[in-house]
Design a binder for these strands. Structure first.
Lengths: 226, 226
DNA sequence: CAGGGCATGGTGGATTCCACCATGACGCCA
DNA sequence: TGGCGTCATGGTGGAATCCACCATGCCCTG
């Protein structure tokens, strides 16, 4: 991939793109848009991070569009795995949450762009091209917010930014209604590990009971409409 | 609905469909699928309930595909408004949540079908056709759960009307995040009593785990009490 | 009166929670 | 380079809980 083949715009072959999202409709929407471009094409699709990883390694797309919340392993893991591969595809994250919360983490984990599903009129393609060209792409509002945040160096906010990646990930799953054992299975972790994370989350968010935790998580997921 | 005017399937013209979703990508995915059918076509799209209402009244589609969570008015309002119009389009709800909670509300508000975004490989079109044909369409898992609920004994299961006073009271406390022991203390009851009520609530609402109960209770308190 | 729903409580076994603890990996910084 | 903190991963054991039955008493309605 680092080989001199990654410049498709001037040649005949289209840039090959992987679409990873657990909503079939979103996949199709993306695929339709991409297919409509003369210089881009979809080379594979997947709904969960495992098959995604497999497919991407096998088909070596130039870019992968990844949703934050997948079935297994939640996108973040996928991104980390891809980044760890070294010469993997460039990565554009699509999310229903426009939380700076996620954007920051995703980018740190190795993503090259972050676009919100909501404000996605024509900008995906724009984002795809930008990321393919080697740039970092952020959807409109996010850039400013991230920047101002970085400048302000803000803390606490009682909010979820105190949580580590793993913790946030688990927090989200809790919000979706998954029990500890389900989460453990889904993330390929020991139940104890998940419980540990749970405990840390509780501590960080100042929640006494697991009930309160679940409540918080459910409300949060609901509010930020996953 | 009983009027003989809405019968597009037998003639040459395609059935005209409105697509209402705040995710552009999902809209496009749906549009692409619909456009691929010989007997269907998209007549308008909208991202919020206001323009949706305006467009639908103006263009009189045979069917409207509506997302639960819109920007303004949350889909539910839209459905109610359309139902109030009397001779509006048939309505198919698409949702990211497979909660019976939502399905119930939507159907009661006047929707004719409810499909989950997740399990949406080819079923949307199927659902569209069914709803156009005058049927009520529910995505797989939901159908059973709702049916078993309806058959199991009582009417409409209006959600919580089946609950006795005590049960509702406890349900609400659960929704506020109170644990069993707290509830017991607060109501001057034995923990066992509360647990019994809990169990009865679960049974009545067809919820499997206590987690589901909590989740549902939290969502309810959030939804209804503003 | 009989039956049904309701509120109250209990028992016992399975599960989950939760407060500690431990280890290895990584990063930071002096 | 070593030390310190954080993170992720796991474990242990006792407390709390869940949950499927069961039991009693009460009130209402047929």
């Amino acid at each position: 991939m680092a080989s001199p083949s990654v410049q498709p715009t001037n040649a005949a072959p289209r840039a090959r793109i992987a679409v990873i999202d657990d909503h079939p409709l979103v996949r199709e929407g993306l695929a339709a848009r991409i297919a409509a471009q003369p210089d881009l094409e979809v080379c594979c699709e997947a709904a969960d991070s495992e098959t995604a990883l497999k497919l991407i390694r096998e088909r070596t797309p130039a870019l992968a569009i990844v949703d934050v919340a997948l079935k297994n392993g939640s996108g973040l893991d996928l991104i980390k795995a891809l980044a760890a591969d070294g010469n993997g595809p460039r990565i554009l994250v699509v999310s229903a949450y426009d939380e700076e919360l996620f954007a920051e983490r995703m980018l740190r984990a190795g993503a090259h762009g972050y676009v919100n599903k909501q404000e996605l009129h024509g900008s995906v393609i724009e984002a795809v091209r930008a990321v393919l060209a080697g740039e970092i792409y952020l959807s409109a509002g996010l850039a400013q917010r991230l920047a101002s945040q970085a400048v302000a160096g803000r803390r606490s906010t009682q909010g979820l930014e105190v949580l580590s990646d793993r913790e946030l990930q688990i927090f989200e799953l809790i919000g979706r209604g998954a029990g500890t054992r389900v989460i453990a299975a889904q993330l390929h972790l020991s139940v104890h590990t998940v419980e540990s994370h749970r405990e840390h989350i509780r501590a960080k968010l100042n929640l006494r009971s697991g009930t309160e935790l679940l409540r918080r998580a459910v409300l949060w997921t609901f509010e930020s409409r996953g």
